[in-house]
Amino acid sequence: MAKLMTEQRFASPDDVYQLLIDSHRDLTPDQSTRLNAKLILLLANHIGDAEVLAEALRVARQGVE
């Protein structure tokens, strides 16, 4: 069974973080929301495994409510 990988996997964590932040530069909150939604869909398809996605969603939701 596929499992969500939560150990550190980036070669250069700061670069990745900056990529995420920079991609939203000059966007309104609505535009950012749209970008995020498209990004999630692209990445979800890349993962291609509903179980991993479900696990990620479960972890992401912790503490939100």
Binding site: T33, R34, A37, K38, I40, L41, L42, N45
Partner: peptide, 18 residues
């Protein structure tokens, strides 16, 4: 948010087969 995802799907569908 459901609308945001829906619109994102429609937008992506033009170029992205998935």
């Amino acid at each position: 948010m459901s609308r945001v995802f829906r619109d994102a799907v429609l937008e992506l569908a033009v170029d992205q087969p998935f």
